[in-house]
Amino acid sequence: MTRVRTGLERVAAGERRIGGARAGLITNPTGVLPDLTPSAPALLAAGVPVTALFGPEHGLRGTVQAGGGEADAADPDTGLPVFDTYGRSGAALDEVVASSGVDVLVFDINDVGTRFYTYLWTMYDLLASAGRLGLRFVVLDRPNPIGGVRVEGPLLDPGFAGFLGRLPVPIRHGLTAGEMALLAGRRLGVEPEVVPMEGWRREWYFDRTGLPWVMPSANMPTLDTALVYPGTGLLEGTNVSEGRGTTRPFELIGAPFVDGRFARELAALGLPGVRFRGAWFTPTAGKYAGTPVRGVQVHVTDREAFRPVLTGVSVLHVLRTLYPEDFACGPFLDSLWGSDSLRRALEAGEDPRGLCGSTGWSGPPEPLYR
């Protein structure tokens, strides 16, 4: 197998230089070399003058569940100050970056390829901050783990832009962090620098890259999770458990009001590349923690045929059809979907699967990989 070489590896090997007097590194546990050396010591060993670290959602060390970051502190391994960026943007984020004293920001985090995952929007906000503060911004590129060919889901309605999406891209967007940075730079009037990977092909899933999988967050344990997440992640906007607090988050779906009809109706749809197994589970955290619930496990049988967004919307449709008195969704679903069209269709009892047509997305204006 030909192994992909990440942007971090190229800088650590001395092939590309970052320069600057004081570098601020934006990273988390996914920022590693193939031998699992973290990016901060790897860059320091390569002579990059890293003087500050910045953590995204879940924190620099990845210890925090969704919706939080780790407090500012000192990194016990490098002694460098750590700044929490989660929940900050605009002037508040500028203040954090300015207080760090850096003159270049370096981004090294592996994303999961879904618009409503927040790491690329942390990158977007820090790129905007770098533009306002006159700092350079460098992206050490990494693979999109679910590939760069297939896209799915609607483009974000600008009226629903926020930390789950800043740019009008599909839910499954097919971009790498470097490509998203270039797209963001056009919007912001800033020119990021990208250290591209070597050897990555757009059709590759992460397990083809030869790189080690490191959990991007606590509820993203495997590539299987990342593959279903663009669809089953929509369950977070409902009163149905998306499997948080289990060993198969986003693959297990259930609620106390679900019965055996749910698995049978999903199987009858004949959705491409996926099967549904009736399942019981008891979440240890999140919705229905400590309560046995009934539902399904999602089993992807053919990656190439599987359409995660269509699958997720179909799950919502079946839930609304079978359990109209119990199933509920709220405004958070709008943020995930990128508009209120899905929620309105569900609340009206309409079939929302027609919303899963063409994305209208032509791909990155400056693709870095073919």
Rank of each mutant, 00 (worst) to 15 (best):
G153D: 03
F327T: 03
S100Q: 13
D340I: 01
L120V: 15
A328P: 02
L234F: 01
E70M: 09
W361R: 01
V318M: 06
N239Q: 06
P324Q: 12
L43D: 03
L155R: 07
H317Q: 14
A267G: 14
S129E: 10
P272E: 12
G349K: 04
A21V: 13
A23T: 13
G312A: 00
P170T: 00
P38G: 09
L346Q: 01
A13V: 09
V315F: 01
A13I: 07
S241G: 05
T209V: 12
P34L: 05
R172V: 02
R202K: 15
H299Q: 14
L105D: 07
R344A: 15
S217I: 07
G134T: 06
A74Y: 14
L266S: 07
P41T: 11
F163V: 13
R277I: 09
W213E: 04
R61H: 15
R187K: 12
V82C: 14
H58A: 09
E347R: 12
R248T: 02
H317I: 03
P352G: 05
L342Y: 05
L60D: 13
F262K: 10
T291Y: 07
R343C: 04
T118C: 12
G270C: 07
R187Q: 11
P308Y: 02
F83M: 06
F83T: 01
P192R: 14
G360P: 00
S100L: 14
T37N: 12
A71N: 11
G254W: 10
E57I: 00
S100P: 14
A74F: 14
L164P: 01
T114Q: 13
A71I: 07
L252T: 06
E251A: 11
R16V: 15
S217T: 10
G349Q: 02
A128N: 05
Y117P: 00
A98G: 09
P145A: 10
L156C: 05
V97A: 11
L346F: 04
E242K: 04
W213Y: 04
G233N: 01
L175G: 08
R370G: 15
L126Y: 06
F116E: 02
V82S: 11
L33M: 15
P38N: 11
P49G: 08
P29S: 12
R353L: 04
D125T: 02
G67R: 09
A285R: 15
Y124L: 07
E179W: 04
L346E: 01
G349N: 04
L164H: 14
V274R: 08
T246Y: 06
V48S: 03
L155V: 01
D141V: 12
P29L: 12
D351R: 05
T321S: 14
E70D: 10
R208Y: 05
E242H: 07
M215D: 08
T209H: 10
S241F: 06
G354D: 03
F137M: 07
S217L: 09
Q65R: 15
I18V: 10
G19L: 11
L44N: 06
E152F: 00
G31A: 13
V82A: 11
P34F: 06
R186K: 15
P81F: 08
V190Y: 03
A71D: 13
E152T: 00
N239H: 09
V296R: 09
L227P: 02
L8N: 06
P212L: 08
A128H: 07
T232H: 00
